[in-house]
């Protein structure tokens, strides 16, 4: 995409996203990457019914699909991710065991999803059976998975190339003990997410030279106790740029910024639950020499 096009696209949508400073360097190239994300959709295929309080009338898979399509029509580079708990919460799951949830995600062309505790509610067998309809993988690096089928469809990371931008996606999940009945998880074991995620993130950043490393997390945003949360994961690791979280159903007013172990900023986001919000990031990448960036701006939240 050339820059003229890029500017035209953004102003056409009614919002001037950014006005790049005219460049005197010829080598500078800008690429826009749009990241769309959901978490804890919990089988909410229809909008919330009228008796749902603040959630009434919100959400719905057909609306989400339409919105995703509109964004795909406008933007050249789009990735779509989910942070777990696709399943459980409406009779759609109880009656059809997640068949429609995955069918719809496949239509929406999700690129990856991580495993939430409720995704085990139909057992490991049930999850595998439904994921057979999907061409996107489950991403997790901190579960030891003995179930053969689940092991096959779960990857520690996925690399997605979007134009000139290389994106590494890893995933972490919550302790299942006490959350999911033992017989459903088929001996899946939880390992420390910090210890599991660090080598994967470093591999993606250093070895694979990913331009952006995203961690899909179903750990939860924040806890009062010692439990590993997205905030703890962010401050205890390096090489992760963006954590897209879930599990605690936080409607974050805006994404949080947490310094990592090296003092570099990590963006953390979560978009409530039930599919009433969809998260969107528009990232602008500038191809330039190391240490030289004409369009780089200091972090601003507001």
């Amino acid at each position: 995409m050339n820059r003229r096009n890029f500017i035209k696209n953004t102003t056409a949508s009614g919002i001037a996203l950014w006005m790049p400073i005219p460049s005197i360097f010829e080598k500078e190239q800008l690429t826009k990457l749009t990241i769309l994300h959901t978490n804890d959709v919990h089988s909410r295929i229809d909008p919330f019914p009228a008796n749902s309080g603040r959630m009434a009338g919100l959400g719905g898979a057909a609306r989400r699909y339409q919105l995703i399509q509109e964004i795909r029509d406008q933007e050249e580079q789009v990735i779509l991710l989910d942070s777990g708990d696709m399943f459980q919460g409406t009779p759609y799951f109880n009656y059809f065991q997640g068949e429609l949830e995955i069918k719809l995600m496949e239509q929406m062309k999700y690129d990856a999803a991580t495993i939430g505790n409720h995704d085990f509610d139909g057992g490991a067998d049930g999850l595998v059976k439904q994921m057979r309809q999907a061409s996107f993988p489950l991403i997790n690096c901190n579960y030891t998975i003995e179930h053969e089928g689940l092991h096959q469809i779960t990857k520690p990371y996925r690399i997605i190339q979007k134009g000139p931008i290389k994106i590494g996606v890893l995933g972490v999940g919550i302790e299942l003990d006490g959350l999911v009945p033992e017989k459903l998880i088929a001996n899946t074991r939880y390992n420390d997410p910090i210890k599991a995620a660090q080598p994967v993130a470093t591999f993606l950043k250093e070895e694979e030279k990913c331009d952006l490393v995203i961690c899909l997390s179903h750990l939860g945003y924040q806890y009062r106790n010692e439990k590993v949360s997205d905030l703890v994961l962010a401050k205890s690791t390096r090489d992760i740029d963006l954590i897209l979280g879930g599990h605690t159903h936080n409607f974050l007013e805006k994404p949080a910024i947490q310094s990592n172990i090296d003092g570099q900023p990590v963006i953390i986001n979560q978009v409530g639950w039930g599919g009433v919000w969809m998260g969107r990031f528009d990232l602008l990448f500038e191809k330039n020499k190391p240490g030289r960036c004409l369009n780089c701006q200091p972090l601003l939240i507001g």
Partner: peptide
């Protein structure tokens, strides 16, 4: 050359009754 993450903008898009269903 490397890809610098120069800017990030985010939005939470609310799916309410003004959104059309496919």
């Amino acid at each position: 050359y490397v890809q610098h993450l120069a800017k990030a903008e985010t939005a939470h898009i609310k799916l309410d009754t003004t959104a059309t269903a496919d």
